[in-house]
Design a protein around this nucleic acid. Sequence first.
DNA 1: CTGAAAGCGCTTACAG
DNA 2: CTGAAAGCGCTTACAG
Lengths: 329, 329
Amino acid sequence: MATIKEVAAKTGLSPTTVSRVINNHPYVDDSKRKKVLQAMQELGYVPNSSARRLRGQKTNTIAVIISRIVNPFFSHLVDAMERIAGEKGYQLILCDSRLNKDRELAHLELLKAKQVDGIILASLQNDWEAIEPFTKYGPVICCNEYDIKAQMPVIRCDQQYGGYIGTKHLIEKGHTKIAYAGGADRIQLTLDRKTGFLKALKEHGLTLPEEWMFPSFYGIEDGKNIFQRIYAMEDRPTAIFAGGDEVAAGIIQEAKRFHCRVPDELAVVGFDNQPIADLIDPGITTIEQPMKLMGTRAMEMMVDMIKNKKKVTYKKEILPLQLVVRQST
Amino acid sequence: MATIKEVAAKTGLSPTTVSRVINNHPYVDDSKRKKVLQAMQELGYVPNSSARRLRGQKTNTIAVIISRIVNPFFSHLVDAMERIAGEKGYQLILCDSRLNKDRELAHLELLKAKQVDGIILASLQNDWEAIEPFTKYGPVICCNEYDIKAQMPVIRCDQQYGGYIGTKHLIEKGHTKIAYAGGADRIQLTLDRKTGFLKALKEHGLTLPEEWMFPSFYGIEDGKNIFQRIYAMEDRPTAIFAGGDEVAAGIIQEAKRFHCRVPDELAVVGFDNQPIADLIDPGITTIEQPMKLMGTRAMEMMVDMIKNKKKVTYKKEILPLQLVVRQST
DNA sequence: CTGAAAGCGCTTACAG
DNA sequence: CTGAAAGCGCTTACAG
C-alpha cells in the first residue's frame, strides 16, 4: 500500500502538501493539487486509518452495544443507527453483550483504548456505578434502556405509559384476571413497564396472584413455555401482557396448539410492534415502539456530542408510545 | 488517558519493559512484572489501540458486508459471526450495503485504509472484476452470496439443489402450475436457485408462462404485492416457490385477506427457515439454510486467513440445504 | 533480563 | 502557498 511519502516523491512535493490535498485544506496551488490528486489515483493511495487515528486522536468509529441482534427490535434499531452513522462518515462496531455484564464492560473498554469515539448503550446490564468511570473517556449515551440514577444523555420511550395503556386496554375489554410477563426488576425499563401495568390494575381495584407474574422472558420459546404454565393452572388468567412480540407470538402459537382460543379464552398484548405482530394469526395487539426514530435520534446525538467536544448538558429525550390494536385482544 | 511512558515513569522502568509486560512477553523479572501490573491498574492504563495498530500493522477488526440487517437471515448470520469474532479477539464492523454497489465498494476501501484486517462479503452487489483489486490488500471471502468467476474463498449453500428440492416437493404434491418469485438473474445465488427450479420443472415436462416469474422481490410487502398480481390473473398458478420466508409470509397473509385458501388454492414454499416460518398459520414449507453454521465457518476461516498470512489456497465450502415441510403445501 | 533508539504513517504548528 | 520537523503511543530489532 502506497504511503503519503510515495505520493510526495512521485509529485516532487512534500508530504505536508499531499496531506493538505487529502484533507481539502485551502491554500494549495491548484495545479499542484491536481498533480497530487492524479498521483494518488495512479498509486491507488488511501490514507492509513491507524496513522490518522493516532495523530488526530479520533477514530470516526462508534460502538453500539445491544443484547441480541436477532431480536427484530434491536436489528431495526441498529439498522437506523447504521444508516445515520454512514451518512455522517462514521463506522459502526456491533457489540453484542448477550445479556452478560462482563461482556458489556469489556466492550466499554473500547472507549479507553480510544478504539471508538463514543458508545451507544442500547442494552444495559451494569449499574450506573460500573458505567460511570467510562464516561470520562468519551461520550456514552443510553438509547432504549436506561438507569434512573445515570447522569448521562438518554433517548428512550415512556415505558411506564406503555405498560399502562396496554393494561388499560385489556381492562376496557372486560378482563379482570390479567397475567404479566416482563423482564427482571433490576432493569429499569422493565420495572417501569411493570409499574405502569400495576398502576392500571390498581386504578381498577384489581390484584394479581404471584404465579401470574412471569419475570425474565425474551424469546418465542419462552412464550410457549409461559402458555404451558398458564394452561396448567387451576385458576387461569383470561389475558396476559407480554414484554415483547416474540414472547406474545410464542404464547399465541402454543395456545393454538392446545386449541385454546385467542382472544376468547386468553387475550394477549405484546410490545414493540415488530413485523411479526401483523403476520401471525390472530394479529398481536401491541405497544408500538418507534425503533427507527430512537436509533436515528441516538446516532445523531452521539455524532453531535463527538463533534462538539464541550460536554453536552445531560440530555433526556422521551419518545411517545402507542397502542396498536389487532385481533389478539 | 495514561500512556506507556507514564506507566514507565511511575515504575522507574523503561517503556520497553512495560510493553513486554502488556504483551505477556517472557523474560521479564517477576517482581518487575508485578510492579508494572500494579501501576497499570492504578493509572487505569489501557494501551492505545491506534498506536498498536499503526505499529503492528494489524487492527483485530473484521468487516462484514450485508445488504439488510433487518432481514432475519442476515441478523442470524451476523449473530454467529459476532460470537466467533469475540471469542477470537476481533471486533466486528457492520456494513450495510442496502443493495447499493457504490456503498459496497466504499466499504471495501476499509481494507485499503488498513482499518480492518479482512472483509466478509455476505452480500454481493459488484462483479468479480470490481472486487478483485481489493483482494491484494487483505483477505476477502464470500459467505452466502458468491460469483462463479470469483477467485476467492467461499462458504455457501447449494442453492441449485435448494431450488430443485423445493420444486420437486410441489410437483410431488401434484402441482403442475408453479410460479416462481426470486431475485435478479445477475445474482449468482438466485440464478442457481432458479436453475434448480427450472431443472425440476423440465424433468417433469412442465413449463411456465413468463408472467409467473417474479424477479427481484425481498420483503413482506413484496409478497403481498405478488399475491395480488397472481390473484388478478386469468390463468392462475396453483403453487408458488418464493425466494425467502418473508416474501412467502406476505403472500400467505394477503391470500388470507382475500379468502384464498393456502395450500388448497395456492401452495407456498419459502426459503431460509426463519422463525417466522413456524409462527404463521399455516406454517411455511421452506428450505432450511444453516445460517449459524455458515456464519461460524466464515468467521473461523477469516480469522484463520488473517493469522496464517500465507495465501490460503482458494477454498470452497458448500453446505447442505434441506426441505422442511409444514402446512403451506 | 533490560533499555535506547528507530519507525509505523500521518497532521499540525511554525517559519518562511 | 509550501516544507522541515516534531510527535501521536506504541513495539521490535539491536546491543548489552
